[in-house]
């Protein structure tokens, strides 16, 4: 295990399943023997607000919060929210972006404009960039609500954790009847993303 820790920042909009996906990620990392910490703020963020979850893992983790400019992987569920956290990224950070937009209130009201061509903006700054159509992939297995787990499958390709640790984590977090479909979603993301 390397001495330095890895920092993942998961961002998006309340209701997209970010907290659950982060929960699975954290369990998988613990299963694989890492020290791991996860920090998020719930409460107000549930009501369609901006959500961010910090996940840090390695040999020994102190702060549950990632230092500015120290994010190794930005795991973004929504385009605008990906842009919002640019200042946290390390130069050369990897960005995994779900190709999805959710209008904030001021855009719906016609006051502000949604930023144009977000994927291009990100790619210019962070060439290590992966655009994923999470919803399309989730619909392939017939359940739009598994988009978050498809995205987690994509992320899993870049983290040194054996597949069975992921599967154990998914099995722990979901109720019995939802385990299989989510394992399927995870494997799809891991394969196709």
């Amino acid at each position: 295990m390397p001495d330095s820790n890895t920092n993942i920042l998961a961002v998006g909009v309340g209701g997209q399943g970010i907290i659950l996906a982060s929960e699975i990620l954290t369990y998988a990392l613990m299963n694989a023997g890492y020290d791991v910490k996860k920090s998020e703020v719930h409460g107000m963020s549930q009501r369609g607000g901006s959500v961010n979850t910090h996940i840090r893992f390695g040999k020994k983790v102190y702060s549950p919060v990632i230092k500015e400019r120290e994010v190794d992987i930005l795991f973004a569920f929504e385009q605008l929210e990906a842009l919002r956290y640019f200042g946290f990224l390390k130069p050369g950070a990897m960005v995994i972006l779900n190709n999805h937009t959710v209008n904030p209130p001021s855009v719906s009201l016609g006051i502000d404009e949604y930023p144009g061509d977000v994927p291009q903006t990100i790619k210019k700054r962070f060439p290590n960039f992966h655009l994923v159509n999470g919803l399309d992939l989730a619909l392939k297995i017939g359940n739009s609500r598994t988009a978050n787990i498809v995205l987690l499958g994509v992320l899993s390709k870049y983290i040194k954790v054996e597949e069975n640790s992921w599967i154990d984590a998914i099995s722990k977090v979901f109720p019995e009847k939802l385990i299989n479909i989510n394992i399927e979603a995870f494997r799809l993301g891991r394969k196709e993303g």
């Binding site: 009501r47 369609g48 607000g49 901006s50 400019r69 605008l80 904030p104 209130p105 502000d112």
Partner: peptide, 20 residues
């Protein structure tokens, strides 16, 4: 102290929580 100023100053619409 790092130079935390963004090279591209991004003015993004806020996303406050809302009634469902």
């Amino acid at each position: 102290k790092q130079h935390m100023k963004e090279e591209v100053s991004l003015k993004l619409p806020p996303r406050p929580p809302n009634m469902c």
